[in-house]
Amino acid sequence: MSKTVSIIDYGMSNLLSICRAFEHIGAMVQVIDKAEDVLKSDYLILPGVGAFPDGMKELAKRGLVEHIQQFAGSGKPLLGICLGMQMLLSKGHEHTVTDGLNIIEGEVLALPKDMKGYKVPNINWHSADENAPGNWKGSVFENTKNGTCFYFVHSYYAHPADEKHLLATSQFGDLKFAAAVKRENVTGTQFHPEKSGEDGLELLRRFIRD
């Protein structure tokens, strides 16, 4: 039986676009919103568009927090996208301080508003750079050329406590921020691979290969 990509629906995401992208690359896709379905998943996607506190509240409301944490510990591939990536971290500083899923230690901070020529929200294609040589081997970026551009839409950025969890970085003025994070089987992208053209699709293809 072929493996299925499970996309968590907690009311805050561009589900349709993510489904379409996975369908396009030939994956079996299901949308799940029940806690018990999380652990049964082969590949889990935590999408998200919106504010950090709202996102965590909606996950908690559906009893999903612990199950996502358990899934992360299971060794099976988990991908967080945009807000879904940010919530993988320990704490968010959007509006107020909110606890995240704490799967990757670190914080989510506001993009600086005083970077000359760089505007917030950051709505743009940015190049993703390999944080350290060889870092992308075995990751979703394995088939990606260093410096490939992806589409970002965000006002906050993830700051992992340990640099080893930085998978790819981008520049926002003088600020180098996490374009992607990774800890073992858990990956998060600040950008939207489902909206980043053929390069984004390639990244998703690589994700479902594991």
Partner: peptide, 8 residues
């Protein structure tokens, strides 16, 4: 469009 165009 969303079936074959994967940009915003």
């Amino acid at each position: 469009t969303t079936e074959n165009v994967f940009i915003p």
